Simulated assay, not measured.
Amino acid sequence: MDTRPREMLGEHYIKSRLLKYDFEIHSELSYDKGGADFMVTKKIDRTKLNYIIIQSKSREIKKSTSVKIPKQYVNKNFVLFVYLINPKKEENLFCFFHEDYHIFKDTGSEYILHINENKINFLQEGHTFDQSKAEKINSIFNELQRKKYTSIIIDGFFLEESIIKTYEIYTKIWKREFQTPSLVYLAEKINSYFNRFSNNFNDIAFYLYISKDQNLKKHILLDDKFNNFSMKESFAKIFTTYTDKLIPFHIMNDLARFKQSDNIILIANDIIYEHFLSNLEIDPQSIIVARLKTEDRPHEMFVKYRWQDITYPIGLALGLKPFEL
């Protein structure tokens, strides 16, 4: 018996229901990718997109039927749709996510779902494709878009200026000298103050660019051998680059490389970055920019991203107490 007409009917029915909820469908697959009959996609930017694999199964049910899925296909961005039609032409559409396979029989290499009339009644209660299941697919996209890493990118000139200004401000206020901060201690304070991302317990990389023409070592303790440390549930590593090239070129290159994979904390603030940042294709919620809030700073840039004041973590690293800032 030729089952292709039924399979086509089921796939078209599934696609029509997905289109109802405004999903973009990509059907032109030249090969089977992880069990995909087609994919639903969501654009990240002009050149990249996320996708969710859709496998469609169509069955004509009289007394009973079954669906088999290789276990290797099942993961967080794999969704199984099962279209059922009975002799009375009554239709049901069910969908299953990676956490739903406990209702399948596990044979070791595949999952099998046996379906009869009683099972249909059960499936209708919790697995019918509807608005709530469409929202669940959208939540998978949100999870795929959530970035798993944080990069803290530091312009050595801006850091030096910020340390000097912060030291001057609080020396005038408190009339006392302060300790020279270590880079590691300052990095910990920058992360704890700036890292406001929802998944802020991921691994963190600090990229510090120091010009060979500057004297940052006069204002901060640098130990190139001690550059790995732990913070709460995160592991952090500092990468220090000494360069005779313009630091903004290094930083703009990092921003372009990391914009899709990482949350970014940018410890750099100068109008030289303004045009580049204004045209950067990135989720505005995935970048935080440092500012140095002083009245005599003429080169403060204006961008659409969230910002925080760099003097607070520097003040803590200098030895000030939170109530003194």
Rank of each mutant, 00 (worst) to 15 (best):
S16A: 14
T180A: 01
F276P: 00
P313Y: 10
H114K: 13
H26E: 15
K175D: 14
H12P: 04
L93P: 05
K89N: 14
Y312V: 13
K119F: 04
S27N: 15
Y13F: 15
I220M: 10
S234D: 13
H219S: 15
V40I: 15
K175G: 12
Y305P: 10
T240S: 11
L208P: 09
D32S: 05
I14E: 03
I14C: 07
R146H: 03
E110I: 01
I54S: 07
F97G: 04
A134Q: 15
I220W: 10
Y209P: 06
S198Q: 04
K42I: 04
L144H: 01
P248L: 03
R4S: 14
E11S: 15
I103W: 02
K76F: 12
K172E: 10
N138L: 13
K89Q: 14
E11C: 08
K43S: 12
F249M: 04
L216T: 02
A317K: 04
I272S: 01
S58I: 09
L222E: 13
K68M: 11
D309P: 05
E274W: 00
M1N: 14
I44W: 01
Y73C: 12
V289T: 14
V289Y: 08
R146V: 03
M301H: 02
N263W: 02
L93T: 04
Y193V: 03
K165Q: 13
I251P: 05
C95A: 06
I152E: 00
F96N: 00
D106T: 05
K88Q: 13
T311G: 00
I154M: 09
H98V: 07
K172S: 06
P87S: 14
S16H: 02
I264S: 00
S286K: 09
N202Y: 04
F81L: 05
I220F: 07
R6I: 14
P5E: 14
Y13W: 14
Y207V: 02
K217E: 15
L292D: 01
F38C: 11
E125G: 00
T171R: 12
Y305N: 10
Q131W: 09
F229V: 02
D296M: 06
R306T: 03
E90C: 06
A256T: 08
Y167P: 03
I271Q: 09
F323G: 02
P87W: 09
L318K: 12
P322G: 08
F201Y: 07
F276W: 01
L159T: 08
E125T: 11
F104S: 05
A290M: 03
P322F: 10
D283H: 08
Q55N: 14
E7C: 07
F229P: 01
F276C: 01
E300M: 04
D45T: 02
L277H: 03
E177P: 00
I163S: 09
I282G: 00
I53F: 08
T311M: 06
K88F: 10
E11L: 12
K245V: 03
A268I: 06
V303Y: 01
I85L: 05
K105I: 09
E91T: 05
S30T: 10
M1V: 15
I238R: 03
V79Y: 10
G156E: 04
P87C: 11
